[in-house]
Write a protein that binds this DNA or RNA. Structure first.
Lengths: 210, 210
DNA sequence: CAATAATGTTACCGTACGGTACCGTTTGTA
DNA sequence: TACAAACGGTACCGTACGGTAACATTATTG
């Protein structure tokens, strides 16, 4: 990343709360910058400066850039986990409601995810080294998310639950990555309609045409 | 990319036909290396050496790395276009057969695409600069592929063709990117079964349970 | 206050990269 | 054979990056 790219950006990385401990500020900065400019597109120096500190302090908290990346990804994983847990807490025992809430959350992306795709997927593509410590995090997290959705579908009483889960899961993965391919102005597909259609086609009682 | 990474790779980039003109060899090398190690993960020097030439000759044929990347992407786009054209030539007028052949091709990935996801998607994620000359190629190509699939679905006589197309398209995008998130050993979903299920649910005559 | 830990500052090292200048060598072709 | 175009080789420039050393400064805490 040319340091110029930081300055000219529309979101100049709104100042990070300077009362936070440096380590946390660094993670916040890393999260923002890695997501916007890519892992290889951001240098540690830029991260430190964005965090209101310097490279030395960064290296006192993180052994290497690789491990900083791994912790960045772990943070995303934890956030995802929290999201699923909240769903379960919000609609306990009601799998279908949880699925619907999950879909709503996906459609209202702007809040939790920005329009640059799934950060874990992006990282998976930006990290070519198979031994990178972040890869484990990505693989485990993605696997777990799929399993949680599968469990919900199984509990929902809908037909062919495994297929339903895969269909929904891949649809979301595809939708987010397609958005990224089209650029910020490219209008993607109508996810809400697709969700509804898929759910309907998995209704346990076969709904025949009138 | 550490040059060590090239040596230790299992596929040491099987030698490129040295009778080809340098420009073509460079594009072949670039295609292989960009795909395996990422665009930012490969230096021009490595590309030139892999192509059996040197950096100077590379810069005699390509103004900059950016433009080399753009041409790399254009090559992928052209190949995709050829694929769709071949489909139409192979099953002229039979949209459903073309759709099925497309699905087969996707499922037999290993031939045309390797197991590292769609190169265009990967590039879209690896290129953060919105003014990169490769972005136009990516956006146009992805849009066009979606349109071609939509056209086929419209001509197929299946119900709700636009939704069907989006469902299939996003499913494929998601499947390939999910594979990348899981790593080479992670078993993905059963695409064939999902395809069949989706097609069945779009049969124009409502098929009721017996 | 004293002592210790955490942070800031600056300078630096080694390496890799994108890109270019210069010159020698091959190749094709009139 | 002669000449021009294309190619190979090498050295180099400027910059950026990951990472470290050494020291000054501030906070904590007893």
């Amino acid at each position: 990343m040319r340091s110029a790219a930081v300055e000219q950006t529309v979101h100049p990385t709104e100042a990070i709360d300077s009362s936070l401990p440096p380590r946390q500020r660094i993670l916040i900065a890393a999260r923002d910058l890695f997501y916007r400019f890519g892992i290889q597109g951001v240098g540690v120096e830029t991260i430190a400066e964005t965090a209101g500190t310097n490279k030395m302090t960064l290296y006192r908290h993180f052994e290497s850039k690789e491990l900083l990346v791994a912790e960045y990804l772990s943070g995303l994983a934890a956030e995802g986990e929290r999201f699923w847990d909240d769903l379960d807490r919000q609609y306990p025992g009601d799998a279908l409601a949880q699925i619907n809430a999950w879909m709503d959350e996906i459609c209202n992306q702007k809040s939790r995810w920005r329009d640059g795709g799934c950060a874990l997927v992006n990282a998976a593509i930006q990290i070519s080294d198979p031994d990178h410590p972040g890869r484990r995090v990505i693989e485990q997290t993605k696997r777990k998310h799929r399993e949680r959705l599968t469990a919900l579908c199984l509990a929902s009483g809908l037909s062919e639950p495994q297929m339903l889960a895969d269909q929904l899961f891949l649809l979301v993965e595809g939708s987010r990555v397609f958005q990224r391919s089209l650029g910020p102005d490219g209008c993607a597909c109508d996810l809400r309609a697709l969700f509804a259609r898929i759910l309907a086609s998995h209704e346990p009682l076969a709904v025949a045409a009138p």
